[in-house]
């Protein structure tokens, strides 16, 4: 690197450091993995997801990929999370 490049880098200051990215990614994935560790994921989740999808599909046109059902632990509570991404223009069937 030339003197100018080095000087510019120095003045520009840092981008988001990769170590910070690493830490954030780890915190997210480990929170997820730890939640699933205690009790194994209940085996009714896939069937539940399928049935919910059918019900929702009766009313809204949705992409099968855009629905997520998951069970998370928040402290003492188990939270059943249902995440449906609706299309931009909701089209009634």
């Amino acid at each position: 690197m030339s003197l100018i490049d080095n000087l510019l880098d120095y003045l520009r200051g840092p981008d988001k450091k990769t170590a910070v990215v690493a830490k954030e990614r780890l915190q997210i994935i480990l929170a997820h993995e730890r939640a699933g560790r205690g009790a194994a994921t209940p085996d009714y989740l896939p069937a539940l997801q399928e049935e919910l999808l059918e019900v929702i599909a009766k009313y809204i046109h949705i992409d099968r990929e855009k629905i997520k059902v998951q069970l998370e632990k928040h402290g003492e509570y188990d939270v059943l999370e249902l995440n449906v991404t609706l299309p931009d223009h909701q089209r009634l069937l």
Binding site: P14, K17, T18, A19, V20, A22, K23, L26, Q27, L30
Partner: peptide, 14 residues
């Protein structure tokens, strides 16, 4: 120090 590696504190916190 250059922000290229997780620090001991980071690892311990995780």
């Amino acid at each position: 120090a250059a922000g290229e590696m997780l620090s001991v504190d980071d690892i311990q916190e995780i």
